[in-house]
Each structure stands twice: as structure tokens, then as C-alpha cells.
Nucleic acid binder design. Sequence first.
DNA 1: TTTTCATATGAATTATGATTCATATAGCTT
DNA 2: AAGCTATATGAATCATAATTCATATGAAAA
Lengths: 106, 106
Amino acid sequence: MKNNSYHIFFNNLANPLKIEIIGSLKKTSKSVKELVKELNVEQSKVSHALSALKKCNIVNVIQDGKKRIYSLNKNTIVPMLKLIDRHSKMHCDCKCCTMKDCKGKK
Amino acid sequence: MKNNSYHIFFNNLANPLKIEIIGSLKKTSKSVKELVKELNVEQSKVSHALSALKKCNIVNVIQDGKKRIYSLNKNTIVPMLKLIDRHSKMHCDCKCCTMKDCKGKK
DNA sequence: TTTTCATATGAATTATGATTCATATAGCTT
DNA sequence: AAGCTATATGAATCATAATTCATATGAAAA
């Protein structure tokens, strides 16, 4: 990845579905179908999302018969999400989110 | 920031201009006008970008007469960009970018 | 060797974020 | 006060990413 293409990587994290997929794969590797069932989303949506995540090596994939098992490359993502959690604990109550249950001053 | 609003934070990093601003402020705090001159972009573009960055506490601002001096909140961002640099060194040559000079297999 | 199951892919549409441009605000200077 | 400077803001447009849907591929089962 070149200097000014950070945004291509981060674009993967700037998306709720992809974040959900990452969250799910953090626990255990899964097939596409398992993700589809767990997250209750359209299969092609999941496939498209996984494809983008794979382009940036955020996930890896191995084939198992007709299934493809996706796993999270935790090296980068896990510490990155930890950074954000810390950031939000310090700073956010919560100007940077749009959640309904947010008590922060907008 | 709540669990599933990571993407609002990351959206700030999924954008070349905002990344440029962050890069510039990493060195030294600057007024809007200084950023405008240095990055050679439209003033309102910079203001809009700064406003989004501020919502997530990625930057801080203080007023100095009619100027507003923006500074980078380095705690989260700097280690985060380091993570990516490491990630890209390990994994990217470079499937996750669209740069013309990229020698990676697409 | 056809059918079924798991997944991927592409094109069309839709949604979302970025840009632009005109204007507003608010501090300074005179 | 009037005018200038620095910055912000909002609405309209434009660009990009996400979604949908129909279909393709390819492995296994029958």
C-alpha cells in the first residue's frame, strides 16, 4: 500500500457490514453461509464485502470442499479496534456517533 | 462511540484529503488558511473536512483572534497509521491500492 | 452426467459522502 | 460603524461505494 492510499484500506472499516463481519470473524473463522446466517444478510452482499476485505488482506480464505472458510487477519485489525475503543472511552460521549442511545452533546 | 459506530470514525480516514490534513497536522498545528495554502485546496473543502475530523475528536481547535488553529490529537491516530504502515509492509505489494506505480498483482 | 449446494461476479440501481458555490458569521482594524 | 479577513455553513450537484438481482462457476452428491 502506498502512502496516499490509506483510504482504500480504511474504507473497509468505514462500513457497518464489514465491521460486523470483522467482529464475527474475530471469534472464529467461518464460511460464507455461516456469516450469512449469523448476520442475516443477503449472500451476495456478504461475498462482495468479503472480497473487498480480502483485497486489503484483512481476511484470508481457504477452500474446504465447496465451502470457503474466511478467517480474520488479526495482526492489524485487533490492535486497531483496541485503539478506537480507547479513543472512544476518552473522547466520546459521544460526538462522533449517531446512535440513538448516545448521551453525548451533538 | 458505541460498538457499531466505528465506521463513523473510520470514514474520516477513508478519505484522501482528510488523510492529507492529518499528515500535515502531524508535524505542526495550523490555521485553516495555512492548510489551504499548503495543500492547495478550496477553503470550504478544508473547513468541511476539519469539521468532520473534529466531530470524532481526531483534531482539536483553539481560537486565536480571527484564526482557528487546528491540532492533531495524536494519541489514537499516530499509532493507528503505524499499524497500517506495518500491515502494508507485510501484506501489500499491493493488492489493496489502486496507485499507478503499484507493482502488486491485482 | 445431471443436479444440487456454496459461493462469486457483473451490471443496474440506489444510497451516501464529497465537492462546489454562494453566503453567513464573527473578530479586527480603521 | 464600516470594511476587511478568516472561517463556517447549507443546499445543490457530483462522485463513489453499497445494494440488489440475475446469473455464472465449480465442487460434491446422486
